[in-house]
């Protein structure tokens, strides 16, 4: 919970966030629904938090899912400059 570095998927819509969380939870993907971290300003209030060791599993579970309205971020609270960096989805 108090990890300083992790990944976050932020959503454009709350409904999309909730339905994606359900989809991921249904396949046992290790994720946590959290309020969107303050480091990310643009998006709805709900995000999915992913610990480093679980990123691959979650990305796999999201294979074939449209990434529209879904943004992946790297959060690093130890950084003094960019605490959040937007990442590209890989194909």
């Amino acid at each position: 919970m108090l990890e300083k570095k992790f990944y976050v998927i932020a959503f454009d819509s709350t409904h999309y966030a909730i339905s994606t969380e359900k989809k991921l939870a249904a396949v046992g993907a290790p994720i946590t629904m959290v309020p969107t971290p303050r480091e990310i300003s643009t998006s709805c209030g709900l995000s999915i938090r992913i610990l480093d060791e679980n990123l691959e599993r979650v990305l796999e579970a999201l294979n074939g899912v449209s990434k529209e309205g879904m943004n992946l971020f790297r959060i690093d609270r130890t950084s003094t400059e960019n605490k959040s960096v937007k990442l590209e989805w890989r194909d």
Binding site: E21, T32, V34, G45
Partner: peptide, 13 residues
């Protein structure tokens, strides 16, 4: 339910 989870998560931070 989503919000209560978010509330307690945020409390820890």
């Amino acid at each position: 339910e989503v919000l209560i989870k978010g509330y307690f998560y945020t409390l820890t931070e």
